[in-house]
């Protein structure tokens, strides 16, 4: 077991990403932030909270997306479906997809499919807390990344939100 991010590092990474996401834009009106269920939402909750603190004068559009019905592996194992809640239009907006760990890229592939059913965004970007490089099965890369790590397939990366740590098992 190896600690990839300590509680303090995790906090700083979230703050850095929040600044990074907001620094280039005067207004956030054209943006929507969408956390991917279930684990990405724990990260996106904190990230969006940080963004709201940095830009308290702005309305931040934030939704959550469940990709269960868009998975390409549902024959192997059924996953519990979670709530999707996107109470606004994404048509013509910049969508920032938010997940905790980017690994094979298949979740993001499913999320891109799912997003299409809500409209045609102007642009979609990807923000992840941990990027497991060199494990990708699809050509998908993050635009914003908390920490990039090298790991092998037999290892597991987990964000422990109770302990506020990112751990490599």
């Amino acid at each position: 077991m190896q600690i990839l991010l300590s509680p303090q590092q995790l906090q700083l990474a979230i703050l850095r990403l929040a600044h990074h996401l907001t620094e280039n834009y005067e207004s956030l009106a054209a943006f929507v932030f969408i956390g991917i269920q279930p684990r990405g939402v724990k990260f996106s909750d904190k990230l969006v909270e940080a963004i709201r603190q940095i830009r308290p004068e702005q309305t931040v559009l934030y939704g959550v997306l469940d990709i269960t019905f868009y998975r390409d592996d549902f024959r192997g194992e059924l996953h519990k479906a979670n709530k999707t809640d996107i109470p606004f239009s994404i048509e013509g907006r910049n969508v920032v997809l938010i997940d905790d760990v980017l690994y094979t890229g298949r979740t993001i592939r499913a999320a891109l499919d799912a997003l299409q059913d809500f409209g045609r965004p102007k642009k979609v970007e990807l923000c992840v807390l941990v990027d497991r490089r060199f494990n990708r099965e699809l050509p998908i890369q993050p635009d914003y990344c908390g920490k990039a790590i090298d790991s092998i397939v037999s290892q597991k990366v987990k964000v422990e939100w109770e302990r506020e740590e990112v751990v490599l098992y």
Partner: peptide
């Protein structure tokens, strides 16, 4: 969850 799908602009999933 499917009830939510049925309220979307595109009421269809590829499952």
């Amino acid at each position: 969850q499917f009830k939510e799908v049925l309220q979307r602009p595109i009421k269809k999933v590829p499952s």
